[in-house]
């Protein structure tokens, strides 16, 4: 086995915050998320030779983490979800005033999404992956990712009672100019 380069180790360290964020998004549980990240790092270390330098390390690591997550789920069977904030979202959510949606409500709503939709909207809307990269990470077609993202978004809007905001709000560019996008 070839020695793992110092650069690879540094890059792994650098990827940990993103990996943890993705893991929490998947598991909805901070402890499980950290175990998952640990497992991912060990696996990545073991198979570092299969990583092609110059390609996207973050996407490679996300793929490992995701595979690990689903294989653990399969092993355990679908145990009852014991997420940190379980059920919070099932309580009534107040209709959101534009821009005043509480982050806690949002977290709760995200928790209610099926895993495949949640991971898709996180990869695209938060982790900064392209649809093509997200499709590679999830091992599915680009169109599948698109439809999951779209369903996730619609579902979140339903849960949070947001509707048609894009049609009335300022467009993306003027929102930046006026600073409305920042809040």
């Amino acid at each position: 086995m070839a020695a793992v380069s110092q650069g690879f180790k540094t890059d792994l360290l650098g990827a940990i915050p993103s990996l943890r964020a993705f893991a929490v998004s998947l598991t909805q549980n901070a402890d499980k998320a950290d175990d998952l990240v640990q497992e991912t790092l060990v696996k990545a270390w073991d198979k570092h030779e299969s990583f092609q330098p110059g390609t996207n390390l973050k996407a490679w690591l996300f793929t490992i983490l995701r595979n690990e997550f689903y294989s653990q789920m399969r092993k355990r069977g679908r145990e009852v979800q014991d997420s940190d904030g379980i059920m919070t979202a099932r309580l009534a959510v107040h209709p959101a005033q534009h821009g005043q949606l509480d982050l806690k409500d949002f977290r709760g709503a995200l928790e209610q999404l099926p895993e495949d939709q949640r991971e898709a909207i996180i990869l695209i809307g938060a982790s900064g992956f392209s649809y093509e990269e997200a499709a590679e990470i999830c091992g599915c077609a680009v169109g599948t990712i698109k439809s999951r993202v779209s369903r996730a978004r619609t579902r979140l809007q339903e849960i949070l009672k947001i509707s048609g905001e894009d049609e009335y709000g300022p467009d993306a560019i003027s929102a930046q100019v006026t600073g409305t996008a920042a809040h």
């Binding site: 993103s18 790092l41 995200l110 695209i124 809307g125 978004r153 709000g169």
Partner: peptide
């Protein structure tokens, strides 16, 4: 649909950024 003009898009980023900026435990 998840751009800065979307409430969902903004919250999603806020949610995620908060997770990313969490302190990384020494164990890693």
């Amino acid at each position: 649909p998840l751009g800065p003009n979307s409430e969902i898009g903004r919250k999603l980023k806020q949610y995620y950024d908060e997770l990313v900026s969490d302190n990384v435990p020494d164990r890693f």
